[in-house]
Design a protein around this nucleic acid. Sequence first.
DNA 1: GCCCTGATTGTTATTGAATATCAAGTCATC
DNA 2: GATGACTTGATATTCAATAACAATCAGGGC
Lengths: 153, 153
Amino acid sequence: MLKHKHDHNVCIETALEAAQKICEKRETRFTPLRRRVLELVWTKHEPITAYEVLDLLSEGQKRVAPPTVYRALDFLIEEGFVHRIESLNAFVGCSDPEHKHQGHFMICTKCSNVTEMNEASLHSVIERAAKENGYTYENSILEIAGVCANCRN
Amino acid sequence: MLKHKHDHNVCIETALEAAQKICEKRETRFTPLRRRVLELVWTKHEPITAYEVLDLLSEGQKRVAPPTVYRALDFLIEEGFVHRIESLNAFVGCSDPEHKHQGHFMICTKCSNVTEMNEASLHSVIERAAKENGYTYENSILEIAGVCANCRN
DNA sequence: GCCCTGATTGTTATTGAATATCAAGTCATC
DNA sequence: GATGACTTGATATTCAATAACAATCAGGGC
């Protein structure tokens, strides 16, 4: 059964190339390790945990240690290539890495697929709510759980 | 320096009595352990971690084990007396336990205080966003980080 | 009272998530 | 080739959560 309608390899390649270019522009180092971790995150195309990355990364070589993975993930998050899903302790690739931003997500409780919402309206409502409560907005996480259109059938 | 303007003891008492009554109505068991854990959560009046609860609970007696705490917290969350803050791996008492609901929070990055937002407008915007993305809404977490009015001075 | 049943709590052990710390390697630049 | 900044490796530890099973407790029916 085909799970995704798109050619996922293309989608991985695109993400890697984009990351490469952005790093060149920002003069940050897209090392082989960081590239490999980003690739693994994209390969799953569902939220992936740090320890899953660790296992995949360790295949066919000496087992790497947790800090190796966490440091790479930290870099990727810092650069905006990856988002962290708090409610799952997991990570997903960001499809719009050009502009750094906070991720707002929908998570399907059946298939685990994640949709990133880039709606400015949502963002502005949240910022306004913060202001109305007397807070100076810094950032926010929004994770909506539900059943996606595909799975409802 | 006085941190809270209200009499916090009253506030704890109120929460415990409310929980007691709700459990009677629902015919669920508000055991001494569960009561004590809820009390500890309220006592801190900031997000408290499970292991902090564990330490407090163990004072002056044989040390309890993690499952004891987690089971009590699970019950309290189930009943809606406590919310979990995903971004902090911590727990806070809910000030409106009558109606079960998902918590939406503002978290002060300076003083760690948490404000629960009960704005229906926010909730409806989130549900609508879910629908527009083709999802059947189940629940959501919203955690906004910022600096509260008190700390901005 | 006594047994049965289900819920609660205790106990031991383990897994999963993340970080602290220090050592070793890499790489551009002087 | 020496220097210093950044990156990765390696060891150990802390914090977060759960699995699995034993013991205990509360209430209902006999």
